[in-house]
C-alpha cells in the first residue's frame, strides 16, 4: 500500500465511510472511539476501521465472521456505486492488514 494517499472523502465514499462507522458504533462498547479513515489505493477505496483495543474482537468476531459480514454489507451497499471498496480492520500493536 505504498502508493496509498490520504483522501478527503466526498459523496459515495463519505456515505460508505459513514455506513461502516455507524454499524461499528452499534457493535462496540466504546462507540466514541470508533474511527474510519479512507485511503485511495489503486482505484479502490480502503476503509480503515479502528476501534478501542477491547472492542477489536467485537468487530472481527469468531473466525472473522463479523468482519466478513461487515464486508458483505459494504459490498451490497456499494454495488451500484461503480467503485471498489475494501474494509481493513486495524489492530494496534500489530501489523495492520486483513484480519480474517
Amino acid at each position: 500500500m505504498s502508493q496509498a494517499v490520504q483522501s478527503e472523502p466526498t459523496g459515495p465514499v463519505e456515505n460508505m465511510r459513514n455506513l461502516v462507522l455507524e454499524i461499528a458504533r452499534a457493535l462496540v462498547d466504546k462507540p466514541d472511539e470508533v474511527v474510519v479513515d479512507t485511503l485511495e489505493d489503486d482505484g479502490a477505496t480502503v476503509l480503515q476501521l479502528r476501534v478501542a483495543v477491547g472492542d477489536v474482537g467485537k468487530v472481527i468476531g469468531k473466525q472473522g465472521r463479523t468482519a466478513r459480514s461487515l464486508r458483505t454489507i459494504l459490498g451490497a451497499a456499494s454495488m451500484k456505486l461503480q467503485h471498489r471498496f475494501a474494509l481493513d480492520i486495524v489492530e494496534e500493536d500489530e501489523d495492520e492488514g486483513d484480519v480474517e
Binding site: 454499524i23 452499534a26 457493535l27 467485537k58 468476531g61 469468531k62 465472521r65 463479523t66 466478513r68 459480514s69 461487515l70 458483505t72 454489507i73 451490497a76 454495488m79
Partner: peptide
C-alpha cells in the same frame, strides 16, 4: 435492492442477521 441479499444462497441476509444479533449482544 432486496434480490442482491438473497444472492449466493442468501449470503447478504446471513450477514445482516449476524450483525443484528451482535448489535443486540445475543449469545451464539
Amino acid at each position: 435492492d432486496a434480490p442482491q441479499l438473497t444472492e449466493r444462497n442468501g449470503e447478504g441476509l446471513r450477514a445482516l442477521e449476524h450483525i443484528a444479533a451482535k448489535i443486540l449482544r445475543l449469545e451464539p
